[in-house]
């Protein structure tokens, strides 16, 4: 499903900042319907790895194959389409548009597509409902609680019905109860057959029954 071969990512800092080797020849294979946890401290390269798998950034070298397609050097047009059709991304800081309503935030990935307004709103509503967000659909998300915002972010990631869910530090801003709620959602997604990759340093994920594998990343290398 997801295959990384000797992926390296170097960030040029500009000026006298030099360059930062965020990923160093990482090779990784993730099978369909697997739930994998990427474990590592802040700055270890987990987020960079997720963004490369999501085609949000390009590796400096190496090959990334997702669902049989090479995405490492995809032009922006195809990378965006790939992201929209195959990937659901959940960010640590949710990355919602604060002034927009709950429902509108969830419909965002579908706006450039061909489906009509009623259909995409119906899809967004169904996803939100399944995640327990039935009220305050017209409320700007900045007025929602942290837990509600995370559910909206999850709904946005799921609204295109992607096969792959990538979650970057999904519980970093949540309390214990909300973290457990998130784990419940993960269980459901796994049952639905999604391939899930979670980058986190939250120990609660390491011993979860639903987790198939824990891969540790340290200083840009798979340990």
């Amino acid at each position: 499903m997801i295959c990384l071969e000797k992926v390296t990512k170097i960030f040029e800092q500009g000026g006298e900042g030099g360059s930062v080797h965020s990923l160093k020849s990482v090779s990784l294979h993730i099978r369909p319907r697997e739930l994998v946890v990427l474990k590592g401290v802040s700055g270890s390269g987990k987020s960079t790895l997720l963004s490369i798998i999501a085609a949000m950034g390009k590796p400096t070298s190496g090959e990334v194959i997702v669902d049989g397609k090479s995405i490492a050097k995809l032009p922006d047009h195809f990378a965006s389409l790939f992201r929209r059709n195959h990937i659901g991304m959940i960010f640590q800081k949710f990355h919602l548009i604060g002034e927009m309503s709950t429902l509108d935030n969830v419909t965002l990935p579908l706006i450039p597509g061909d489906e009509d307004t009623d259909t995409i709103r119906e899809k967004a509503y169904r996803i939100l409902k399944s995640l327990g967000v039935k009220k305050r659909l017209g409320t700007p998300v900045k007025n929602l609680s942290g837990g509600e915002q995370q559910r909206v972010a999850i709904a946005r990631a799921l609204v295109t019905n992607p096969e792959i869910i990538l979650a970057d530090e999904p519980t970093a801003n949540l309390d214990r109860k909300l973290t457990l709620d998130f784990i419940d959602i993960l269980k459901r997604l796994k049952q639905e057959g999604k391939t899930i990759l979670i980058a986190t340093h939250d120990p609660v994920f390491f011993d979860l029954g639903i987790v198939d594998r824990v891969i540790e990343i340290d200083e840009g290398r798979v340990v």
């Binding site: 999501a54 949000m56 922006d76 047009h77 965006s80 389409l81 992201r83 929209r84 059709n85 990937i87 991304m89 960010f91 990355h95 919602l96 548009i97 965002l108 990935p109 706006i111 450039p112 946005r156 295109t160």
Partner: peptide
């Protein structure tokens, strides 16, 4: 950035 992240193309 958010629009791009959720799958909007440059032309969108």
């Amino acid at each position: 950035g958010i629009l791009k992240a959720v799958g909007w193309r440059i032309e969108d």
